[in-house]
Design a binder for these strands. Structure first.
Lengths: 347, 347
DNA sequence: CTGTTAGCGCGTTCAG
DNA sequence: CTGAACGCGCTAACAG
């Protein structure tokens, strides 16, 4: 029934010293004799002391919790980035306060406020797809809290940005399709005001150009990143166009395309080849297995964590863009008989 | 460059009142005149005031952040439970501090300490698979912090437990296989000291018994919840045993079984029928589509959130076990030609 | 090496 | 209806 939490004052009284000494001892301050330090630690443990980080942060002005805002936590990519972030932050004594924006700018704004109220030491964010203006970040920047953007980023906000090389991913996928014989390649794009989708699209165009294939805008389907829209898109396209390849900016729309093509008795990869993006866990499991671009989410997370820890307490934060490499994983869905085979196992 | 955060004192000075009044006004205290209340709120907004929840919690002894510990955040089930929890907690003004145990009891212990140090108002936990003793929860209970267990639970700790009806799920899956003609059904089990796997196993045994099939322990494979172990298990089993059905406690081992069976040219569901558990996103996508038990993770999350909010501040916490219903989703992998068909679409 | 003093920002008495 | 005073638990000056 000990509702009373042990404080440093309690253990100070117990030992006949002052709270300051206890505080210093627990902080490992060298100016306290080794003997008292050890005694303090022993007594603290004995009495079941739990430091009150609220009081500590309030007094010191520093905080060991970092805020993180992602569109959705139950997406393979984001949950793995989070894991990567925690893998570095937790051992270093930091906590992560995670918020979801649910792809809504209003929730994103609320999350920012909530994190500021919690006096987090830094903020990590990937913007919602709705977010097009960024004035709700002024407060964050004004308070000199390090802000690290990742994946969905904007250069309207200063500070570091960690992103995949989406351009390269788009280019390599498209080039791969071309090398395997595709002449008319459709692209299922996401919202083009979002950097990641814009860059994948740019990579696609670049690869076409380099191969001497003229870009045809009627082969580009906008806002096509879900399974259903992928199915619809491929069905509509095949009515009027002759395509032999699809580069989808998302594995989900690629999957939708595959399912619809099978339904329509179109042979994959024989008649139409398909590649996706993100290397979702299911991509390895569908039939035919889907070629996709691996984003190395966990590694991205570790880099984000290191970056934010570096910048805590610093005055000015460097304005850099860091690229995490991507890797095209070639599977059955995009292979012509005579081509390279690289299979990756998941789980 | 305003490094200084606005406090209630700042806005008090600005208005020529005392901090007390501002504090009361912002709290919506009726004893402050409506006029000053409105003025305070206006000025606060104007000056860009952000309440300091650290100071607030420190003073009031209450906390609006809830801690949550899960084995891994990047598992479909857990990330959806988290989403459900946040869907209720956030609108109510609570924050969620999420920790991962990585299935290690040591990390679980650390997470508990970290949450206690952060003076969370409540703790939500699903135990790691390693956790077999529970004395590290004594401190939590001693401090009268509400503790809600979910999914992986133990009755060695008091308080509410929210779990799926795993027994029912196991029983229905097995019964379904029996009804579809299976006579010798293998079970791929998880660690049996974990409640969820134990109960699925018990449901399996119960269904066999009810159908007059004698239980044969040589058809049970322990510790078989990953894709690889599922593949291995089915291969080894088929060497010595004749089986016509597999009830796996995990979709991953079920998937491994399916892949290996296809490799061995065993026809599914013709010669062997397979069911899994958890309705992972891929289950709908593999070939043949995998029958599985849907756990309603999001709904479980909302119930957890409601429960913990109810119990904050209460003296004694009721000692109940709440069951979240499960639903067997029948797909191709377990159907005999003449049976019910219910397909569920995901994404 | 240790004690003293003074807050961090806020909520809550107790007066008036 | 509002002000004055105090303290939540801790850290950080300044002494000695």
């Amino acid at each position: 029934m000990a509702k009373h939490r042990i404080t440093i004052t309690d253990i100070a009284k117990e030992m006949g010293v002052t709270p300051s000494t206890v505080s210093r001892a627990l902080a490992g301050n060298e100016r306290v004799s080794l003997k008292t330090r050890e005694r303090v630690i022993a007594v603290a443990k004995d009495m079941g002391y739990q430091p009150n980080v609220l009081a500590s942060s309030l007094r010191s002005g520093r905080s060991d919790t970092i805020g993180m805002i992602v569109p959705r936590i139950n997406r393979h990519f984001f949950s793995n980035v989070i894991s990567g972030v925690e893998a570095i932050l937790n051992p270093a004594g930091f906590n992560l306060l995670i918020c979801q924006s649910h792809e809504r700018v209003e929730d994103e704004r609320k999350a920012i406020h909530s994190l500021l109220s919690n006096r987090v030491g830094g903020i990590i964010i990937s913007h919602s797809v709705e977010t097009k203006s960024f004035n709700h970040y002024n407060e964050v920047l004004a308070e000199d809290i390090p802000l690290v953007q990742f994946d969905r980023v904007t250069d309207e906000i200063g500070g570091p940005r960690i992103v995949n090389d989406n351009f390269l991913g788009g280019m390599r996928s498209t080039r791969h399709l071309i090398k395997n014989g595709c002449k008319r390649i459709a692209h299922f794009a996401g919202s083009l005001h979002v950097n990641v989708y814009k860059e994948r699209f740019d990579g696609y165009k670049y690869a076409l150009e380099k191969a001497g294939i003229v870009f045809d805008s009627s082969l580009v389907v906008d806002n096509c990143i879900l399974q259903d829209s992928g199915s619809q898109a491929v069905e509509i396209l095949l009515r009027s166009e002759k395509i032999d390849g699809v580069f989808a900016a998302s594995d989900f729309s690629a999957l939708g395309a595959i399912k619809k093509l099978k339904e329509m008795k179109v042979v994959i990869p024989g008649e139409v080849k398909v590649t996706g993006f993100a290397n979702e866990p299911f991509s390895d499991l569908v039939d035919p297995a889907l070629s996709s671009v691996e984003q190395n989410a966990f590694e991205m997370g570790t880099q984000i964590a290191r970056l934010i820890m570096e910048n805590i307490g610093k005055e000015s934060i460097p304005d850099e863009e860091i690229h995490v490499p991507v890797r095209l994983i070639v599977r059955e869905s995009s292979l012509s008989g005579n081509s390279e085979i690289r299979i990756k196992k998941d789980f």
